[in-house]
């Protein structure tokens, strides 16, 4: 298992858990204690950061590539494809999350405004799950450069 696969496996469990706990706590705090600029700013930064985290990783790896090759063109393509797959998943999730309440409540009804940040947290979870799974699927079961195959031959 290479480094990207390990990261993807960690993110597959860590990111949904972190988003659910962190985001849920922030929404809960705002609901109980009322909104404040600090909490709203933290929530906004949290949502932006988690949604665009893959971009930061890509840029960091490109910087590191100059010294030692641990992240080549193939890894870059895999990460970009995974991000696209993640966004497709998020889009389908958002469509479902918006149409289902519209259908259930009816167009004359109202919903609590807290549903919007909760849907956003759900979007972060959906994105991280689809992206991590896409990375793991693209790398396959064997490591980069066919590590398992080499072990079998030895």
């Amino acid at each position: 298992m290479n480094r990207s696969q390990e990261h993807a496996l960690v993110w597959l469990f860590l990111m949904p858990l972190g988003a659910a706990i962190g985001g849920g706590l922030l929404v809960g705090l705002v609901y109980v204690e009322g909104p404040s600029l600090r909490r709203t700013l933290i929530f906004t930064l949290f949502a932006v950061w988690t949604g665009l985290f893959w971009l930061w990783i890509l840029l960091q790896q490109k910087k590191r590539r100059k010294n030692k090759v641990t992240f080549d063109e193939r890894d870059e393509i895999i990460h970009k494809k995974a991000a696209l797959a993640g966004y497709v998943g998020v889009w389908l999730y958002f469509v479902t999350a918006c149409v289902v309440p519209w259908w259930l409540v009816g167009p004359q009804g109202t919903v609590s405004v807290n549903i919007l940040p909760i849907i956003l947290i759900g979007g972060i979870i959906a994105f991280s799950i689809v992206q991590s799974l896409a990375i793991l699927i693209q790398y396959g079961r064997s490591g980069k450069n066919g590590e398992n195959l080499t072990q079998k031959i030895e």
Binding site: V27, V30, Y31, G34, P35, T40, F43, T44, A47, V48, G51, F94, A97, C98, V99, P101, W102, V105, G106, P107, G109, T110, V111, S112, V113, N114, L116, P117, I119, L120, G123
Partner: peptide, 24 residues
Amino acid sequence: FVAASVTAWCIVGPHGSISVNVMP
């Protein structure tokens, strides 16, 4: 999506409600 959600959340307040048509 982040901007739209946070703006509505801030304007209406956490105890308020919005028309469900806002979502589509």
